[in-house]
Design a protein around this nucleic acid. Structure first.
Lengths: 226, 226
DNA sequence: TTCCTAAGTCGTCAACTGACGACTTAGCAA
DNA sequence: TTGCTAAGTCGTCAGTTGACGACTTAGGAA
């Protein structure tokens, strides 16, 4: 019942095929970069409780060397989280949603196809879920504020095109946005975490979700006034 | 960077308030029951890597006693999983979805309100996600076959009422069902795992999701023939 | 009351694990 | 070639863990 990552440690002293030769020298910054990349992959697979020795083995370096770059495992995890989870949220990556030269359906399909492929990857999702479950809640505010803005944008733009007025209640308005955002997020969870089937291309499904959202909005918007 | 469950161990030898007195005697079956109940709660909070010593402390018994009931921690986990995750799927708990005396909207709202409250709890979701991430994939087939049947039922019944024919492609048909099922599952994940706001009652949101699903189905069904 | 049995605990083993002091060595500059 | 410095490793410590042999004791039956 040891952590599963243990099995990476090349069977310990078994066959001498891999004599664990000395790692090639590398500049500080470069090695640090390599460790962070490997760590993102490693912890997303084995969870935040993955062992530093296994991570070091995956990097092809000694465990001790990790501590030349990060004072503690927690510090390493924090940086992995900041880069892998928070990093992709930087910048104006959904400004195109307000480009009214295109139909809202087109805008949503293009945006979410990109979002699905760039952000809702196996690596991102697993790391995010491990962090959420650990309840460290490392930076829920940062992400949630961006998602909130995204949801507001989606509902406002869709309502505009549909010539309806969005719900007064901002909480309810955001929940309407989650109708679309949640369905697509769950598609990614199903496929990347639950290992569900990929028989229908995700782009087709995104189109379905977008059309469903737009078809439902005129009906569901009315509840807001209750 | 120890497992968080450690903090349950009543501060070790600190204040002598709790001298760790002997547990009260209890019949074998009853104690076993108590352990399993506590274990479900415990592992759902602290993850499958939670320590047996902490679990024992939460049960008010010695760690050794756990091994009078389960040969290994893995065996205990397997039984917890079978009861907590698989157990709720037994029986004909969604037969009412085909009761055509009620409108499909009513049937879906009633079913998913029940489903959300009974199954999509914090405990169930956390345990399920921890298991899915661990990739033990303890029994994905059993659950997925039931969900598949549920999805088929939903789309067929909705199509019947809407006087449209469901998609030919069974994979696509199920994906249409996921439009609804996924949105509601994700609502539960958001609220129970991501600690999202609960300002709008979940019953209101289920109504929104159901109406959105029914409004979108006539449009999205057409893609199946492509 | 006596005694027997099952409920329950103590203490310990061996492997695991984060962390780090002390040491070795590659590769460049003079 | 020499020698300095930063890259890299060894070995170990202390606290954790799953697991279990040996022991203690509650409480009902005779």
């Amino acid at each position: 019942m040891r952590a599963r990552s243990t099995k990476l440690k090349q069977d310990k002293k078994s066959l001498s095929k891999a004599p664990a030769k000395r790692a090639k020298r590398m500049p500080h910054a470069e090695r640090r970069e390599q460790i962070l990349t490997q760590a993102a992959e490693f912890f997303s697979e084995y969870g935040l409780t993955g062992q530093t020795r296994s991570l070091a083995a995956a990097c092809g370096i000694s465990q001790r060397l990790l501590y030349r770059f990060f004072p503690t495992k927690a510090a390493l995890l924090a940086e992995v989280y900041a880069r892998t989870i928070l990093g992709p949220f930087e910048g104006e990556w959904f400004g195109d949603l307000t480009n009214r030269d295109k139909s809202m359906e087109t805008r949503l399909i293009e945006f979410y196809s990109d979002y699905y492929e760039k952000l809702l990857t196996r690596r991102w999702l697993r790391l995010f879920l491990y962090s959420a479950l650990a309840e460290g809640d490392m930076a829920p505010n940062y992400i949630s504020s961006i998602i909130t803005k995204l949801l507001d944008t989606i509902v406002d733009e869709a309502a505009l095109e549909l010539k309806i007025s969005p719900p007064e209640n901002p909480d309810f308005k955001r929940e309407l946005g989650w109708t679309l955002h949640g369905a697509i997020s769950h598609l990614a969870i199903r496929r990347h975490i639950y290992h569900g089937p990929h028989k229908i291309p995700h782009t087709d499904m995104i189109k379905v979700y977008v059309q469903t959202f737009l078809a439902g909005l005129p009906i569901t918007t009315k509840h807001g006034a209750d």
